[in-house]
Design a protein around this nucleic acid. Structure first.
Lengths: 239, 239
DNA sequence: CGACACCTTGAAGAGGTTCAAGAAATGTGG
DNA sequence: CCACATTTCTTGAACCTCTTCAAGGTGTCG
């Protein structure tokens, strides 16, 4: 066992609980360690993959922060998600063997490259891995349902509140604060994700700030009143 | 081989190309025939599954038309998709073992029940089936990306045009007309899916009709000018 | 044939966008 | 390390699209 092998092993990774299945036998763990073919560093602003790229691997994020977005020929642009450490990206490429969106690093990042044929091979051998892959994909589908609900039925303030709560929840699961967060993306990227213009995002931040619900200092957000934020999302002016 | 077995076999199903993997050996085909545990008839308006139901199976639609939707406690409601013959529904349940949305038949329907543990078992044995399952889930993820683009960046007319083109494309793949279609859903359901109020949907239908792009007669739509419809979607007032 | 669900249309109003200008932060090169 | 260019963010005012509320019309099914 050389140093490189230790470094790459999932079994040694502190993100294991986030991106790998639980309750494996030692034997299975050893096999899954083979999944990660390599690590890759991506600088801020660089692409992990782009629309049209051949699909070969899924990527587990070790450090850093990504956005995925689709850009159409006619110039439309839509951020479809933000990914952080322990999350998997690249699922869009499976269906057609080509990626249909771009993945861009919003800060310097390191990712684990997991060749998909290897994943499929091991999934046939390790039941827990197979189910794990299915759950990851299903989870992404359910997440997108939530975004559809947000885009289809919420007003600006509700969207931004839901967005902040979702971010802080995921960050908290990674050991960060439940009330403080640093946005890794611009107002424009938030707006694209939420179906709003950047000015609206900015104005809505200002309003939430005026209302004493959050404190905004550039990209640093302090959630002062989590309950109020929850209330904004979960109580559309009742009929 | 009894009559019942013949009736249920995927190998005899005329929707095989739509919902099953291609290029299987005879041996594999025989095994996949075991996938469908039973058929189930669902009357118009009835649920195939509901939010909170235990997840056990995926469902292949043989005949009929479904919608999936999420309903939140605070009364929000979002149609997340429409499914037709040859399509698979139920993927939302995998991640948590519970369904997180409702599936409702919009017309009398018949579906094939495919227990998910059977799918996972056979996926470990039949490589083509495994990949097929992965592709189905990836396809759903990519579809939802498209909906996010629609909800996040399109105006009412663009949304409705994109919706009609998508419907007619899927119907055409099933042997129906490229220019005529019958809507199986109400204006309200279309509106929910597209993030619009039913009045806006109705008005937009009227506008497209006035412009000579489509002819609307209740739920019967005749696409008079497919190019114009495409243009509406693909050419937001260029910058 | 009558009741009910569904659809259409009008008018007023609200929420978000657009355009514009300036302020704050960030990055770059000398 | 500082000055300058660039990017990002904030805020205001006018405008526009979609929503809301309301009423009437059309179709369907028992």
């Amino acid at each position: 066992m050389n140093i490189e092998a230790i470094k790459i092993a999932c079994s040694n990774c502190n993100l294991r609980e986030l991106c790998m299945p639980m309750g494996l036998s030692n034997d299975d763990i050893e096999r899954i360690d083979e999944l990660v073919a390599s690590r890759r560093r991506i600088k801020r602003g660089e692409y992990l993959y782009q629309n049209g790229d051949a699909f070969s691997s899924l990527y587990a994020i070790r450090t850093g922060f990504f956005k995925t977005c689709i850009t159409t020929e006619d110039g439309r642009d839509q951020v479809t998600g933000f990914q952080m450490a322990g999350e998997i990206t690249g699922l869009d490429g499976i269906v057609s063997d080509f990626h249909s969106c771009d993945s861009v690093a919003l800060e310097d990042a390191e990712i684990c490259v997991m060749p998909f044929d290897k994943i499929e091979y091991l999934s046939r051998e390790v039941k827990a891995l197979q189910h794990h892959v299915h759950r990851i994909m299903s989870k992404e589908i359910v997440r997108e349902h939530g975004v559809m609900l947000l885009l289809g039925s919420m007003r600006a303030e509700e969207r931004l509140a839901a967005f902040l709560l979702n971010l802080v929840k995921r960050l908290h699961a990674r050991g960060f604060s439940r009330t403080e967060l640093v946005l890794r993306m611009t107002r424009e990227e938030i707006g694209s994700y939420l179906g709003l213009k950047l000015e609206t995002v900015s104005r809505t931040f200002s309003k939430l700030s005026d209302d004493g619900v959050i404190a905004v200092k550039q990209r640093n957000i302090h959630i002062l009143d989590p309950d109020a934020l929850n209330l904004i999302v979960n109580s559309q002016t009742c009929a």
